[in-house]
Design a protein around this nucleic acid. Structure first.
Lengths: 235, 235
DNA sequence: TTTATTAGCGAACAGTGTTCGTGTCAAGTA
DNA sequence: TACTTGACACGAACACTGTTCGCTAATAAA
């Protein structure tokens, strides 16, 4: 309930609203955290700022641009260590972990990273770090370049896949434990009834296939990629 | 223009349409190939079958299920070699290449693979093959399981990222060459104006960063993953 | 022949991104 | 001080989306 405007006031609205791009991006991020990426509609963002959707287009070209701006700000939260090429394996791992941690904090937003190659200052900041790290570790420019590219794809892909589980938790109004039991239990039950003739290997190792969680799988992927890079350094 | 129904016919429509799930999935796939995944709407599919959107829901629970069914059929096109664990590196590479080839043929559809863990017979068929291959190559069940998981993620992630370029080609009505010039030229120009103080490494290697195409980057990622698995086998 | 079942489908609902045109205020100019 | 200018705010609308509700009509069962 708002206080009714006294009729002798010439200005009906109390004050001209000060709508800025920053405020819009912030409102968008709040919605992402609380309700997930596909609840971020222009209408929802506008409503959070107590205005209509058309008003946003003065500060943001379209929804895609808004999402990119949101991602840029998120990537600003990623903290980088002081570069030390003698420990490049460790530092690559650290940056990938940190990137995934920050993206996961903002729910689905990894989807945006997967679609748009981040070209903002914060995206470049991280790219520059990893690229320099690989170069100083002794990789050829081409290997460093391709490595950077594949690492980025891996982090974005994994973060997105992981966030999808989170979205389903939200959608089903479950606790993570309930979700785990329900979802994995279902899949596990499904795999269990696989005919051992058709799928002997998977049928024999159902438990192993379901054993590891998101974090372990992510780390395993990093292990593979880094070991692969090490092999390149030796040859 | 249709021939008007003669008034003495008691049945207005010539015959009850025989709408099947297969036909719906087929129509969906045709649209994916021709216009891309986000042109696949229930209305578009229905129109392709000369009917209304509501009619589809008798054969398909919802759009998500339709997309999963489409993916399942696509994965049926993936051909597997005869399993030979002595050449596991080669065969893993072959399956990944083939998977990417087939998915790329159907435009954006990798997006569906990234969201839903494929649980249909064709998805399992490929999973079973890779899993068995790794087991017989001497990997522990856990390593084989995690490897399978990361390989799948990598293929889906890469295929999706690659398909996005294709979508933009379609959206801009350009030839692939025009797109390449326009898009990469733009990014290249953008990277070129990076301040060498802020981004010295990237600024110094702009050309290298842009040198490789989708295929080379994909192969490099496979190299890393397989070398990483080899390292695990030795330790 | 009568009844039960069900695919087909028109219409509608609630939601989306985006644009147009109008309003309205704040600053710049005469 | 009075007037013009220009930019922002925003209600309304457009063309879309997935999905549901009932009704029709054709087939299958009794």
């Amino acid at each position: 309930m708002e206080t009714p405007t006294p009729p002798w006031r010439t200005t009906r609205k109390p004050r001209r609203r000060q709508l800025t791009q920053d405020a819009i991006v912030g409102a968008g991020l709040r919605i992402v955290v609380e309700e997930g990426l596909d609840q971020v509609s222009m209408r929802a963002v506008a409503q959070a700022l107590d205005t209509g959707p058309a008003s946003l287009y003065a500060h943001v070209a379209n929804k895609d641009e808004l999402l990119e701006l949101m991602l840029e700000r998120v990537m600003g939260e990623i903290e980088l260590p002081e570069l030390d090429a003698s420990r490049w394996q460790e530092q690559i791992r650290q940056v990938m972990r940190e990137s995934r941690r920050v993206m996961t904090k903002y729910s689905d937003i990894a989807k945006v990273a997967l679609i748009n190659i981040p070209t903002g200052p914060n995206g470049l900041r991280i790219g520059e770090f990893m690229f320099r790290l690989l170069l100083e570790a002794g990789f050829s420019p081409r290997d460093a370049s391709l490595g950077l590219d594949r690492f980025s794809l891996y982090v974005a892909g994994d973060a997105y896949e992981g966030a999808l589980h989170g979205s389903r938790v939200r959608a089903g109004n479950l606790s993570p434990e309930e979700y785990f039991e329900q979802f994995f239990g279902m899949i596990q039950a499904y795999y269990r009834q696989l005919s051992p003739e058709q799928y002997p290997a998977m049928a024999a190792h159902v438990d192993t296939l379901m054993a590891d969680g998101d974090d372990e799988r992510f780390e395993f992927g990093i292990d593979l990629l880094i070991a692969g890079m090490e092999a390149r350094l030796r040859s």
